[in-house]
Every structure is written in C-alpha cells, then in structure tokens.
Amino acid sequence: MITLTHYLVLSGIIFTIGVIGVMVRRSALVIFMCIELMLNSVNLTFIAFSRYLNSLDGQVFVFFVLSVAAAEVVVGLAIIILIFRNKATVNVDEINLMKW
C-alpha cells in the first residue's frame, strides 16, 4: 500500500537533489533546470496532499505553479541569452554581476 508518506519522501529526495544541483553546477542553464526540478517536487507534494485530503485545491494550485513556471522560464531564458550575448558564457562563477 502506497501512503502519503511515500510520496512525501520521494518529493523530499527530488527536492534535495535539486538543491544540490543548484549549489554545485556552474552552468546557469542547468541551475535553471534544477530549479524546475525543485518546483516539480513541490508540485508532487501538493497533489499527494490533494489526493489524501480529498481536496482539489492542491491541484488547482499546481496549475498556477505551472503557469508561473512557464512565465519564469520564458523570461529567465531570455535573460540567459542576453548574458551570453554580453559575456560569452553562462557559467555563474564567471558572471558574478550581483556584487557590491
């Protein structure tokens, strides 16, 4: 029998993998993908709860998260392209613009 706990544990593992990815990878693109991974793991918890609480609010919420993710990806990728145009790299440790 698969319980809520199974889904939550899975979600936690995926989330942690995403966190590690953000911290260790250098390519802005891959970091971005890892963020998408984290978003998805959270979506999974929403839907799991939605299932076990007999409520559809979680699924509606995931729908909105999806829309936001779509918007975010569009803008984020545009920014990455711009950075690449200016700096000829997308490695975050070579960009460090957000500095004093």
Binding site: V92, N96, M98
Partner: peptide
C-alpha cells in the same frame, strides 16, 4: 564584502 556576487554562495 559578503556580497560576493557568487550566486552559489547565496544559495
């Protein structure tokens, strides 16, 4: 000085 600009340390 803490504001290194290295996103990964922010993370």
């Amino acid at each position: 000085r803490m504001q290194t600009g290295a996103i990964q340390s922010y993370m």
